[in-house]
Structure formats: structure tokens, C-alpha cells
Design a protein around this nucleic acid. Structure first.
Length: 581
RNA sequence: CGGAGCGUAGCGCAGCCUGGUAGCGCGCCUGGUUUGGGACCAGGAUGUCGGAGGUUCGAAUCCUCUCGCUCCGACCA
């Protein structure tokens, strides 16, 4: 393990820059953001742009080091690419045009176009096509740990979604698909190792790879209430997926025979599913929602889902092979259905009608009447409704049966996406003509993969998962210091000497230790200690010294014990070694 | 991008409606008393009231513009 700032001089609290705040800063919403500000780990410079203060930087560096070790072990090679990217490479890949306002563009003194790299496929592909000629040099996986810039619509939550952020990004190059799959597997395993070593609870979930055509993709999600993504995982097998992607099992039930006649009934002013269901004294699962949507190809379609379900627009977009689908404007809904929003139904529509599989098994249901204040009841397909296509279109929910194993059910979580592994294929190598010669002397287009980890975001996610009302409880591998030595009263000569001695011995052993030598009241020191949350706290006070002991407190468990002065260093070392396993 | 809100001391805020030249708590500095869970007393420093313009004898306060920041939304039929 690399030693951080190995001189002792600045490991004294009185000389260190550790600006803690008693009060919660007004504009911090999530816990990790609040605590990072309060502990003085970060300070904001502009929206989504932060200073990494000394304490924060130490945790960031810890994270980077774990990543580095595992990447190296997996055979990846570190390099460093520039932040400023010339536009020409981005023109080559076509992304100068495609990338929207997130790409921060600027000009140099000669008026040439540049951008701040939000990701580095172009640059790395350029490196490889210029330097790799033969299949013998493959496979190759280049990575860097570097600052990225994405001009986010809405930066928020501190390091969780900044505009400028530190990212580890890796890119693999292989001769063929099979090789690329192997590179992908290696990264997948490296990522599991990384997050495990950080002591985080996480899931590797199947993710939507989008219409780009990438074959597969996993997101690494740290489980936390404040997570921006919804994920599901099976309670009995390994299957886990982003809800954007999660498959809903369809057993292919037959449509029941109609028992009711279709009938148009009055539903004055009852627009939402809940209102209609309550009004008709039915459950919302007996209703069908008719969504009028428009696609990026300017088609207008209707989609039917059971009243208590939600449409998964990404599944729909993938099925239709379009970039996006959005709810139609109210005026368009009126034009297509003839009724104000809230009364749309599938009967008599002249547009394409798709339905979620589940609708297939429904009978005698309720749909909108396509007339204001009217719904149909006793509706059945195919008798009353023409459905052009059934497909898996709804959003997966907690309790849904697992599509991969028998008997398993979905649990649902919120997750923070901290890593993403993605098989790219030949998108960039094609566009940028990155080829090598194979063993037959034929030029072959390289098959690529890309693999990212948000470094700052992972630290923030670790805080979301490891804190209490007093402050941080970071796991030892990510904590900025391993040990805090609190000298209760620096004016007491014996207390001072003992603390200094323990501190010096720890430094000699390479332990990352901070000595709180401030002339503050003990209460303040303990509050700061809890806030900053250094995992192992040694308290040296006159009270204990009379007995020849110091006090050891474990921040994460709250466990306290008295340890003879002579043994404290080895006891601490044992704790540190235990955490390294 | 649409909507809402905020900008006053390092931090958290009051003052603005009803105009009269800026205040509270924490922090900071000095001295003293204190010293095992955010002490007490006494004294002290700190503000282009986000910026520009306007109204007025007079603007933190009213008006206009502008910049910055925060939150909510962008899957209601």
C-alpha cells in the first residue's frame, strides 16, 4: 500500500486544514453532500464543481489506489489522456454533432474548436490506431484516472452528480468478439473486487445498452435510499437489473372468454385510473391505461398497460427501434382520440395499438371511451379491441417472478450507479478506422469495450451507506486516516508525552494517523472525531494514564475498551490488518 | 428547457411588506477563568446588503435589467 504524506509534521490537527462545520450547510440536500461539507472534505467552487480539501483528497486517493491495484491485477495498463480534446477527433466519430450541450466546447487562441473530455473513446481509439499494428499486441486494455467534464443539465448532491468529476475509465481492444467478451468478463470481476474491497453493499445489474446496439452492459449499483436509480434483484438467484431493463416474465396465459357485454358508461370528470376505479367501484387492475405516445420518428401510437402498472418507455423505444417515446401533447391526444386527456381508449383508434403482455390475460375490463366523461366497461379483445402487437412493455415491480429462475421473486432497491461496464463493439473503431493485421495479414476492425467508475461518486456513495447522526463511519479502506489520537489535555505534560509517543510509533509503522493536539475542550474534540469518523480513535487522558491505559474506540461499532499503553500500537495494527483481508 | 425560490459578516439566518444608512447566533482575534462529550466572563475585528441602472432629500428595503445559486419537473391519460 502506498504511503500517504509520510511526514509527520502535517498530521497534527492543529496544523492540518480540517475546517469542520457545526451547522448543516443550507444548500446540501443528501447526507453525503452535507457530511462532506461539514467535515471539510470538499468545498464548492461553482455549481457541480468542487475543491477536494485535504481530508477529502485522502479518501479519493484511497479509492483511486484500490481501483489501480485491481485494474493492474486484471491486466489493464494505466495512461493519462488530456482533458482538452481537439474537435477533429470528435468529428471523426460523429459525436461533435451528436453530443448535445453536455459537451463543453471552447476555442483556442487560433480559433480552433476544442472540448473538455466527457469520456475518452475518441482519444484512446486514436492512440491505439496509431500505435497498435498487429494482433500480437492484443488484447489491450488502457485505463486512466482523470478529471472529466460534463456540463450536466442539473448538477446536484455534491460529488454525486457534479459537472467536473474524477473518473476511472478503461477501454479494451480485442481482435474479435470472443476476445472482447473475455475482456469484459475480466473487468466485471475486477469491478466486483473493487467494490468488495471498499466494503460496500452493491449489486451488479443488467443495464439497458440503448439503441446503440451494444450487446451487453452491467451497472454497479451501491445500495442506498437516496439512489437515483431503481433496481430489482432476484431473492433466490443472481439476476439483478435496472428497472429500465428488467424483464417481466410472461407465462403466456390465454385470454379468458368474455362474460360481459361491452357498455359505454358515464364517468363525469373521472380522469385518472384511481378516480375511475373508485367511481366504478373496481380495482385499478381491472382497468386498462391507454397511453397515447409519440416517437422520435414522429409516429403516434397507443400503448395499453394494466391500470396499476407503469409503462417502461425504454423497452418500448427498443422494441420500436426509435430513440425515444414521449407522451403526446394534449392537443394531439384530442386529435387522435377525439376526447380530452383522461378518456383515451383503444376502441376505434386509427393508429397502431400495442399492449403489454399482461393485457393478453385480461377480460371484461374498463377502457376510456374516447368521449369526454365516458368509459367502456365489459371490454374484451379481440371482440371489441384490435391489438396489433403484444410485448413486454411494463416496468418490473417488487414481487414480480424472476425471469431467470423458478420460484424467485424481485426485491426492489434504490441504487447509486458507481460503475458501468459496457461492450462497445466496433462503433468507434469503425468510424475511426482502428484496425490491426491478423495472423493472415488481413486488416481487422478492433472490438472495443469501455468501463467506467465514478471515483468521487463512489466515496459519496460509501458515505450514504456508512454514517450516523454524528457523522461519517467510512470503512477503513476508504477512511482518510486510519487512526486518530486525541490528547485530551495538551497542557498536561504526561498526556502530551504519551500521545506524542504513540503518534510517533504509529508513524514509524506506516500507520496513517492524525494527532489531535489542539488546545480545545475535550467535548469539541470528541464531536469533531465523531464527525470526521476516523475508524480507530485513541483517547489519551490523565484519567486513564493513572491506570496506565488509553482508551480505544471503534467508530463503526461504537465499541470501547481500555488498552495498556504498551500494547496500543500492536492492538491498532491488528485492527488495521484485519480490515485489509 | 419549464416552474418555484434564494442571494445581507467565514457559516446559519433576521431586517425588506410599511424607505431614514445594518443586526442576531455560531465561528474568528485578545485577556482571564475553565478542561473526558460542542464552557464562561470581559473586550475586539469583519459587510462594495450578488452586480448595473432607475425612482427618491434618502434605497438592503420600491422599480427595471443582469449575474450566480438551490429546489421541483421533463413516464398524469
Amino acid at each position: 500500500m502506498q504511503k500517504l504524506h509520510s511526514t509527520g509534521k502535517f498530521m497534527r490537527y492543529s496544523q492540518y486544514l480540517l475546517p469542520t462545520l457545526k451547522e448543516v450547510p443550507a444548500d446540501a440536500e443528501v447526507v453525503s453532500h452535507q457530511l462532506m461539507l461539514r467535515t471539510g472534505m470538499i468545498r464548492k467552487v461553482a455549481a457541480g464543481i468542487y475543491n477536494y480539501m485535504p481530508l477529502g483528497l485522502r479518501s479519493i486517493r484511497k479509492m483511486e489506489q484500490i481501483i489501480r491495484e485491481e485494474m493492474n491485477r486484471a491486466g489493464a495498463i494505466e495512461c493519462l489522456m488530456p482533458m482538452a480534446n481537439p474537435a477533429e477527433l470528435w468529428h471523426e466519430s460523429g459525436r461533435w454533432e451528436k453530443y448535445g450541450k453536455e459537451l463543453l466546447r471552447f476555442k483556442d487562441r487560433k480559433d480552433a474548436d476544442f472540448c473538455m473530455g466527457p469520456t475518452h473513446e475518441e482519444i484512446v481509439t486514436d492512440i491505439v490506431r496509431n500505435t497498435v499494428r498487429s494482433y500480437r499486441q492484443l488484447p489491450l486494455n488502457l485505463y486512466q484516472i482523470q478529471t472529466k467534464f460534463r456540463d450536466e443539465i442539473r448538477p446536484r448532491f455534491g460529488l454525486m452528480r457534479g459537472r467536473e468529476f474524477i473518473m476511472k475509465d478503461a477501454y479494451s481492444f480485442d481482435l474479435d468478439d470472443a476476445g472482447a467478451d473475455l475482456s469484459y468478463q475480466k473487468m466485471y470481476q475486477a469491478y466486483r473486487n473493487i467494490f468488495q474491497r471498499c466494503g460496500l453493499r452493491f449489486r451488479a445489474v443488467e443495464a439497458d445498452s440503448g439503441a446503440i446496439g451494444g450487446s451487453f452492459s452491467h451497472e454497479f449499483m451501491v445500495l442506498a435510499e437516496s439512489g437515483e436509480d431503481a433496481i430489482v434483484s432476484c431473492d433466490s438467484c443472481e439476476y439483478a437489473a435496472n428497472v429500465e431493463k428488467a424483464e417481466v416474465l410472461w407465462s403466456g396465459q390465454e385470454t379468458p372468454k368474455p362474460r360481459q357485454e361491452i357498455q359505454l358508461v358515464e364517468t363525469p370528470d373521472q380522469k385518472s385510473i384511481k378516480e375511475v376505479a373508485d367511481f366504478l367501484e373496481l380495482s385499478s387492475s381491472q382497468l386498462i391505461k391507454t397511453l397515447i405516445l409519440q416517437t422520435s420518428t414522429e409516429e403516434v401510437i397507443a400503448v395499453l398497460v394494466r391500470g396499476d402498472r407503469e409503462l417502461n418507455a425504454i423497452k418500448l423505444a427498443n422494441l420500436l427501434n426509435v430513440d425515444w417515446v414521449l407522451p403526446a401533447e394534449e392537443s394531439l391526444v384530442k386529435k387522435v382520440t377525439g376526447a380530452p386527456a383522461g378518456f383515451a381508449g383503444p376502441i376505434g383508434l386509427e393508429i397502431r395499438v400495442l399492449a403489454d403482455n399482461e393485457v393478453c390475460a385480461m377480460s371484461d375490463y374498463v377502457v376510456g371511451g374516447n368521449v369526454a366523461d365516458r368509459h367502456y366497461i365489459g371490454v374484451n379483445h379481440p371482440r371489441d379491441v384490435v391489438i396489433d402487437q403484444f410485448a413486454d412493455l411494463r416496468r418490473a415491480e417488487e414481487g414480480d417472478p424472476c425471469p431467470r429462475c423458478s420460484g424467485g421473486h424481485f426485491e426492489s432497491w434504490r441504487g447509486i450507479e458507481v460503475g458501468h461496464v459496457f461492450k462497445l463493439g466496433t462503433n468507434y473503431s469503425d468510424a475511426m478506422e482502428a484496425t490491426v493485421l491478423d495472423d493472415k495479414g488481413q486488416a481487422r476492425t478492433l472490438v472495443m469495450g469501455c468501463y467506467g467508475i465514478g471515483v468521487g461518486r463512489t466515496v459519496a456513495a460509501a458515505i450514504e451507506q456508512n454514517h450516523d447522526e454524528h457523522g461519517l463511519k467510512l470503512p477503513l479502506p476508504l477512511a482518510p486516516f486510519q487512526v486518530l489520537v486525541v490528547m485530551v489535555n495538551p497542557k498536561d505534560e504526561q498526556v502530551r508525552r504519551t500521545s506524542e509517543d504513540i503518534y510517533a510509533r504509529l508513524l514509524t509503522q506506516g500507520v496513517e494517523v492524525l494527532l489531535d493536539d489542539r488546545d480545545e475542550r475535550p467535548g469539541s474534540k470528541f464531536k469533531d472525531a465523531d464527525l470526521v469518523g476516523i475508524p480507530l480513535r485513541v483517547t489519551v487522558g490523565a484519567r486513564g494514564l493513572q491506570e496506565g491505559v488509553v482508551e480505544l474506540k471503534i467508530r463503526t461499532s461504537g465499541e470501547q475498551s481500555s488498552v495498556p499503553i504498551g500494547e496500543i500500537v500492536s492492538v491498532l495494527q491488528q485492527h488495521i490488518d484485519a480490515a485489509a483481508d
